[in-house]
C-alpha cells in the first residue's frame, strides 16, 4: 500500500511532518482541514510518497 506523508512548510521555511497516511484522500482531507485554520495562515502543505527525512542542518 502506498504511504503518504504530509509535511507542513511554515512561512519562514521550517518543515514539520504532520503524519503518515495510507490513502491520498485521507492525506488531502487533513491538508484541507489544516489550511482552514487561521493559525496556519501562511503555511503550505506537501504530500509525498517518500519519507521526509530531515536535511543535514535540521537534524
Amino acid at each position: 500500500m502506498t504511504q503518504f506523508y504530509v509535511t507542513e512548510v511554515r512561512p519562514h521555511g521550517e518543515r514539520s511532518t504532520v503524519g503518515l497516511f495510507y490513502t491520498r484522500e485521507e492525506a488531502a482531507a487533513i491538508v484541507r482541514q489544516l489550511e482552514s485554520l487561521p493559525g496556519k495562515h501562511g503555511c503550505r502543505y506537501v504530500i509525498s510518497t517518500t519519507l521526509p527525512t530531515p536535511a543535514e542542518g535540521e537534524r
Binding site: 518543515r15 514539520s16 511532518t17 521526509p52 530531515p54
Partner: peptide, 10 residues
C-alpha cells in the same frame, strides 16, 4: 522525521 523539532519514528 521531525515534528516541531522532535524526532518521530513513524
Amino acid at each position: 522525521v521531525l515534528t516541531d523539532g522532535v524526532k518521530r519514528w513513524l
